[in-house]
Amino acid sequence: MPQLTRSDLLSLEAYAKARPQIRAKVMAHKKNRTVHLGDHMTLIFEDALTISYQVQEMLRAERIFEEEGIQDELDAYNPLIPDGTNWKVTQMIEYPDLEERRIMLERLKGIEDQTWVRIAGFDKVYAIADEDLERENEEKTSSVHFLRFELTPEMIAAVKRGAAIGVGVDHPEYTATFEPLPPAIRASLANDLA
């Protein structure tokens, strides 16, 4: 999958004008790329559209318009675009109550490494987590992780032929499975693979 470049982005002015339409398009698109695992975890399967939206929103929020700053954002977010052999995911651990969140983030250390995808007929593929920087320390895990699920050529071929896809997490303190994914999500994820 191609990486985003400066030419893929709108100026701050142009983005401000088009933002309501872009936001509506991205939110509709994300519906077929979002999986809720249990009551407290959401996986968003990223792609060029979701990441370009993130970059545009960061540029807008930070009022970044200089080339160097724009390139810094592109450099930070481009690694989150799948490259044809994998899925890249933002994992969010969500506990609205602050005290419960604090307790659970202590108990859920390592959860990012125990999150998986499974193509029908194959073993689970566990995430390669947080390649950019460590998001866990001695006391707790982070509420946000960035995951990569690297697939074999055989798995990719199976997905392209219509094989079911499942996702889950096997942590001692949090176990959830969603298999098979709905057809619209499965189709959207299949488009990420070369």
Rank of each mutant, 00 (worst) to 15 (best):
T90M: 10
E179A: 15
L10S: 08
A16N: 05
H171N: 01
E150T: 11
R19Q: 13
A158N: 02
L105N: 09
A14G: 04
K140Q: 15
E150G: 04
A164S: 13
L80N: 11
P182M: 06
L133V: 11
R6I: 09
K124C: 07
A18V: 02
T85D: 12
L108N: 05
I103F: 12
E73K: 13
H36N: 11
A164H: 12
V169F: 08
L43E: 00
Y126V: 05
K25W: 09
A164P: 04
S52Q: 15
E134K: 14
R186S: 13
E67R: 15
G168Y: 03
Q114G: 04
A157W: 04
I70T: 04
L80I: 00
F65D: 15
A48Y: 06
Y15Q: 08
N32Y: 11
V89N: 02
N137P: 04
E154R: 14
P182R: 11
Y53D: 10
E138C: 01
N32W: 09
K17W: 09
K109W: 07
P182G: 05
E57A: 09
K30S: 15
E57W: 08
E100C: 09
H171C: 01
M1P: 08
A176F: 03
S7N: 09
E46L: 13
E46V: 01
E99S: 14
S188V: 05
V125W: 05
L193P: 06
V167N: 07
F149Y: 03
L80H: 12
L133P: 00
P180Q: 01
L4V: 05
E13S: 14
T115A: 10
T90Y: 00
I93L: 15
E46Y: 08
A61I: 01
R63G: 10
A187W: 02
E131V: 08
I44F: 11
E57C: 10
I103T: 15
